[in-house]
């Protein structure tokens, strides 16, 4: 997802760390963080994924005045071409890779630029034909330095994956 401005904020890092069950104080306690090797609050390793919050057109967030495909009292019948996935081309998320050039902290303001990667097909045992597509996201800081390189692979299936 392309994002023009992703401000890294302490409360967002705290909520993200809680959601992955991580109570490491370096993610919320500045005083504790001062005594650690990084010397300040940093973000957990997969935090960059939450840049979705700052993508104005992110398609997996309900938006004011637009139909949403999730249920209300009952299913709404609103169709989405692909029902999601953080990996890139829609469908389910198959792979995710991060390279850390440095770890981000509150106060950083990132941009994310997206480049399409490879796409390929495979015959799946549990879900028919699998269509994979890759996206590469480069996160840069306020100085234009590359801080994180992310590569996501999304997969679309012909039918739901058997449980």
């Amino acid at each position: 997802m392309a994002v023009e401005k992703f401000p890294v904020e302490g409360s967002h890092i705290m909520m993200f760390a809680r959601s992955v069950g991580d109570d490491n104080q370096i993610y919320y306690d500045e005083d504790h963080a001062k005594g650690t090797e990084p010397g300040k609050v940093i973000a957990p390793p997969t935090f960059a994924q939450s840049s979705a919050q700052f993508d104005p057109s992110y398609f997996l967030r309900p938006k004011v005045g637009e139909d949403w495909f999730g249920s209300g009292g009952s299913p709404t019948g609103v169709k989405r071409e692909a029902s999601g996935g953080g990996g890139g081309g829609g469908g389910l998320h198959a792979e995710q890779h991060f390279e850390y050039h440095r770890h981000v902290s509150p106060g950083d303001v990132l941009t994310a630029t997206v480049k399409p990667g490879k796409s390929w097909e495979k015959e799946g045992k549990r879900s028919g034909k699998l269509m994979f597509s890759e996206t590469i996201t480069e996160y840069r800081d306020q100085s234009g330095e590359l801080v994180i390189t992310a590569r996501g692979v999304g997969v679309r299936t012909e039918r739901p994956v058997d449980a």
Binding site: M15, F16, S19, A52, D55, R61, P62, S71, S83
Partner: peptide, 19 residues
């Protein structure tokens, strides 16, 4: 649900049993 809220990925596949 907590992860959906923090990450911003509100795909109903993760939180909406009816859908």
């Amino acid at each position: 649900v907590q992860y959906a809220g923090a990450s911003g990925d509100y795909n109903p596949l993760h939180t909406d049993e009816i859908f």
